[in-house]
Simulated scan of single mutants.
Amino acid sequence: LEAVGCGVLIDGNRLEVQAPPWRADLTDPADLVEEVVRLVGYKNLPSTLPIAAAGHGLTNSQRLKRRVGMTLAARGAVEVLTYPFVGDSELDDLQIPIADIRRSKVRLANPLSDEQPYLRASLLPGLLSTARRNLGRGSSGVSLFELGSVFQGESVGVVPRPSVLERPSADEWAALNGLLPSQPMHLGVVLAGEREAAGWWGPSLDHGWSDAVQMAQVIAEVIGSEITIEQGNDQVFHPGRCATINRAGKPIGVAGELHPRVIQAWSLPTRSSALELDLDALIAAAPAVRPAPAVSAHPVAKEDLAVVVADSVTVAAITAALRAGAGDLLESIRLFDIYSGPQVPEGHRSLAFALRFRASDRTLSAAETAEARQGAINRAGLDCGAVIRGA
């Protein structure tokens, strides 16, 4: 240390070091240690590799996140990693309201760009920028997704700096952690342009809002969590083609067609769609072990029915009522037709469902099937005011 101009006073095992005025970088004991190592030579220090603790494989959360990525990739989506930085102009282009949590502004102390001084609170800005870039370079369609953290909170004032002489106390550590914003893991998807190219088999098919909603349903099924989907009202999305994704009655995401002004601001094809949901919330509700599906060797009983309901009744509501009324014998229910026009009262529509009944231990009789079907009709009438079409 004296060789670099330091004044050194030895007191037993204690060194008191006075840094020279031209070495303003020597401010902490760690700086002095680093200086000694530099002078002695890193090559003269013995190397000791740390011993890694025995692993236990991936956690359940890690396995599910990997499963989500593999599922989306199998459906033709490409995973991207975008920068987690945003600016006010991007949030304005998305039409995010001022009070929205996606307007959270966690400001960086040293941003790479003054135009993007904040950490993202939504995955959509980065995904939309990536979609625009690829479409601008000749791609006829893109299907992109990202698994990443978002930062929801506000910037704090002066952050306390603990001493480097010792480990921070429990109170200091808790205070530092308390300054951090919430950082949930989100899943973001952007679908734009062609989904299938044109060919001898027919014209090209474009991505639509229903593709984004279906991806949310597929992800929930893969994870093993139940979700409900209802009409949404998000300013980022088209007012008539937006769905809110709920888990246990709490919104955890949104999917649908982007608002025309958002599409114009980002120079995307018409009908471009997106999905963003809180993946941590979905995984937290997933079972640790999913039971294997029960497979029955007995034949299925098929029943189709069409009910007339008011336009204000959602498909999710009527589906839930039919499922509850049909009971345990119902294996599956699927909406296959929506009709409004002649033979249906004004302000109403006809919804046609395919119901499949099956028992695990016997072949269902005609009477059992009819009873389950009638139970579904009765419950739909009670809960939703539904009537059988043509009755």
Rank of each mutant, 00 (worst) to 15 (best):
A212R: 06
P46V: 09
R103Q: 12
S225N: 01
L187H: 07
E331W: 01
L108E: 07
E368D: 15
H298D: 03
R137F: 10
D92V: 08
A121F: 06
V86C: 03
R334L: 09
P184N: 11
G253W: 05
S169T: 15
S272V: 03
L364D: 12
S340R: 11
A380W: 01
V142C: 02
S89H: 10
V78R: 11
N13H: 13
R247F: 06
G126S: 02
S332A: 15
G327W: 04
A286F: 03
P168I: 07
L335F: 07
Q264K: 13
P160M: 05
V36C: 14
A281T: 06
V159K: 13
A310D: 01
G126T: 03
L15W: 15
R356N: 14
L127R: 01
I377M: 08
G193Q: 05
P299N: 06
P299E: 06
R161P: 00
F357S: 08
V295F: 12
A255S: 12
A284T: 11
G325Q: 09
G153A: 08
V8A: 14
L49M: 12
P260L: 06
A310W: 00
G76H: 11
V156Q: 12
G325L: 06
R389M: 02
S182M: 05
G240H: 07
N110K: 12
G126V: 00
P50E: 12
E331I: 06
G153K: 00
V189H: 04
A372S: 14
A174M: 10
E371C: 00
L81G: 03
S47R: 14
G126E: 00
L135S: 05
P260H: 05
S182Y: 09
V213N: 03
G202Y: 09
